[in-house]
């Protein structure tokens, strides 16, 4: 497509029109550095609107940085009048994905953009622009659903603070629940599996008790943990997980706590560790003994002898 490279007053570019915006959550420092050192290497693509202003098709971040740095003129690639909205959508996606792999939120925006402007029968053919290789349409549509999540979650998803699988779970929820849960998860620096555990537990407590997720959030003890101004996000994450586990599996957690307190009663030295059967389901416990020499083995033997006559042993073995 033949574009015309022109220089335009920057205010002619319609700042409010984000129809074709794809970028979110990208590092700006490198862009600032390159603007400062060599200027605008890669001018944004624009199209002329009926009111004579320019609609940005690609290069939102560049325009924004130039604007912030006080540029009055900017070099742009003006798309020909023959470029319809579908072509512009493809350019927007291709220009972004040509520079870097898109993050999940950008992929969502890109697919949503193509879905909006391209003929449905052509959509699948354009998906390699988004994903770098052919992708099944249902998969792409699931990704595109992320754009419907509350705006406040878009950046955490783009930055990977909420993983794609968890974000897709949030998509199944009413907006207010997704917002509350997504907001919580975005602030808890945990692995994907632990985030999933939190989602599972909250959802299952709510389903078991026929209440909304928000009603679980409103439970005083939980609300107190959430509201606590805890500077250490890891501490908060562990409090949240623990509260939810106790609430979801009260008997199991109580039994595990009792087991731990009986075990503490044994006063085992660090050279002996005791692992109960997982979930206390089987009857095989495991003792791990660490030693370096004969004297330490003898010492362990004496400790094991003391354990055998300790009153807590029967409780640990459920005798």
């Amino acid at each position: 497509m033949d574009c015309k490279r022109i220089t335009s007053p920057i205010e002619r570019l319609d700042e409010a029109d984000t129809t074709f915006a794809v970028t979110i959550g990208q590092e700006q420092e490198a862009l600032d550095r390159s603007l400062a050192l060599v200027g605008l290497v890669h001018p944004p693509f624009v199209r002329q609107k009926a009111d004579n202003s320019f609609q940005v098709v690609s290069g939102f971040a560049r325009v924004a940085r130039c604007r912030e740095q006080g540029w009055s003129q900017i070099s742009v690639n003006l798309l020909p009048e023959s470029a319809d909205m579908a072509a512009c959508a493809c350019i927007a996606v291709a220009d972004n994905s040509g520079q870097r792999p898109l993050n999940p939120m950008e992929q969502a925006r890109a697919v949503a953009l193509l879905e909006r402007f391209c003929a449905p029968e052509n959509l699948e053919a354009f998906l390699p622009l988004v994903f770098g290789s052919p992708a099944p349409l249902p998969f792409a549509k699931k990704i595109a659903a992320l754009v419907k999540l509350p705006q406040s979650l878009h950046l955490p998803i783009a930055l990977g603070r909420i993983s794609l699988p968890v974000a897709q779970r949030l998509c199944q929820m009413p907006q207010n629940e997704a917002q509350a849960l997504g907001g919580l998860l975005a602030g808890l620096p945990l692995s994907v599996s632990k985030h999933k555990e939190i989602v599972d537990n909250i959802e299952q407590i709510a389903a078991r008790e026929e209440k909304s997720l928000l009603a679980v959030f409103d439970e005083p003890d939980f609300a107190a943990i959430l509201l606590e101004d805890n500077s250490d996000a890891n501490v908060k994450a562990s409090l949240v997980r623990q509260w939810l586990k106790i609430r979801r599996y009260p008997n199991l957690e109580k039994a595990m706590q009792e087991f731990d307190s009986h075990l503490a009663g044994l006063g085992l030295p660090p050279s002996i560790s005791w692992q109960p059967p997982p979930f206390l389901e089987g009857s095989t416990h495991r003792l791990v003994l660490r030693f370096e020499n004969r004297a330490e083995i003898e010492n362990l033997r004496d400790i094991l002898g003391q354990i055998l006559s300790h009153p807590a042993l029967g409780r640990l073995l459920d005798e």
């Binding site: 299952q204 389903a207 009260p250 008997n251 979930f279």
Partner: peptide, 11 residues
Amino acid sequence: KLPYGELIPGL
């Protein structure tokens, strides 16, 4: 409510 019982993975 079956899936929401206190279910754990068995042996």
